[in-house]
């Protein structure tokens, strides 16, 4: 009948709550805060004499590398130093300043802000069904002339919409703040990566930024599906939120511990951080590729949604 009205209702419920606005405000405040702090403390002189500065860094790194090799230090540490030295030498030779900040560079540097979005999306998604059970309002909703799956779908789409909206707002604010602070140019600006064969390569920052925006939508979808399932399985909202947050942190920790096992690539959490796969830097689990991870997330999302809708359809509501 009027399914869109169900969606409107869910949307209104989300935005009638104070916490939603706080969740939106927190990343914005952080972004502005960081830009202001950076502007106030950056030493302009260093930026202008960056080649000198970088040459010094290369020297220091070289010293540390010799030391590390002598002591047989951790391989990852040695790799990191070698890669840093190569990148910095390449930067000096090709005149690419790592200190030159633009709106795009700022967006790349601020990409970690998506952690907050993930966190808040978990809270909203794991609350949206369980809260109605906890408060008993679900009864007033299920006695309407709508099949249960339609009601659940409206909640899922509303949560997903909220997650996407939040991400878009944060992207926009980051770009705007970055632009106002450092100028809106820099579309052709490059950054350096170390490829698997040890070669230093140039990549466009703007490419990374857009790829990151794209993969975050995929990550958020999987995250919403997971929290949404937990929200439907647990009828207390505090338990659901707790379980969802715990699952997220425990999942990441377990993947870190099991990173060397073959089967870890088939787990949900090993594939939850797509942004590291964009340029293959700082990749924790080595065998993953972007298409593979996206496929795994898609399969998990479908399974989790199937469980959610089946359980919700059959549940006896005694709240």
């Amino acid at each position: 009948m009027k399914w869109l009205s169900l969606l409107t209702n869910e949307w209104i419920k989300i935005f009638s709550r104070m916490r939603t606005w706080i969740f939106l405000a927190i990343p914005i405040v952080i972004i502005i805060g960081i830009a202001v702090y950076d502007k106030a403390t950056t030493d302009v002189e260093v930026n202008e004499n960056w080649k000198q500065e970088l040459t010094q860094t290369v020297k220091d790194d070289q010293k540390a590398l010799d030391e590390a090799k002598k002591n047989n230090d951790n391989e990852i540490y040695i790799d990191m130093l070698e890669s840093n030295i190569k990148q910095n030498e390449y930067a000096i030779a090709n005149d690419i300043s790592p200190y030159e900040t633009t709106a795009w560079q700022f967006m790349k540097d601020m990409a970690w802000i998506s952690i907050f979005i993930g966190l808040f999306v978990i809270v909203v998604a794991s609350d949206i069904v369980s809260n109605e059970f906890a408060k008993g309002t679900i009864k007033m909703l299920l006695i309407r002339p709508y099949s249960r799956w339609k009601i659940l779908l409206s909640k899922f789409v509303a949560t997903l919409g909220f997650a996407f909206l939040m991400w878009l707002v944060v992207i926009l604010v980051t770009w705007l703040v970055g632009g106002l602070a450092y100028g809106f140019g820099g579309m052709d600006q490059s950054y350096l990566i170390t490829a698997e064969d040890g070669q230093v390569k140039e990549r466009l920052i703007v490419e990374y930024v857009f790829a990151n925006i794209g993969v975050e939508f995929i990550e958020l979808t999987a995250l919403v599906a997971m929290s949404f399932m937990i929200s439907t399985l647990f009828m207390s909202n505090s338990v659901a939120i707790g379980v969802a947050l715990f699952t997220m942190f425990a999942g990441n920790t377990i993947v870190a511990l099991l990173a060397t096992k073959d089967w870890v690539i088939y787990t949900l959490f090993a594939n939850m951080d797509l942004s590291v796969l964009i340029d293959g830097q700082n990749q924790m689990v080595k065998d993953l590729t972007l298409p593979f991870s996206i496929s795994v997330l898609a399969v998990y999302t479908v399974i989790m949604l199937a469980i959610t809708f089946t359980v919700f359809q059959k549940r006896d509501v005694k709240a």
């Binding site: 009638s16 709550r17 408060k135 008993g136 009864k139 007033m140 006695i143 002339p145």
Partner: peptide, 15 residues
Amino acid sequence: RVGAIVENPQLYDYM
């Protein structure tokens, strides 16, 4: 064309 209250009417407190 059904209207109902099942046990107590539970409402959205924050609205």
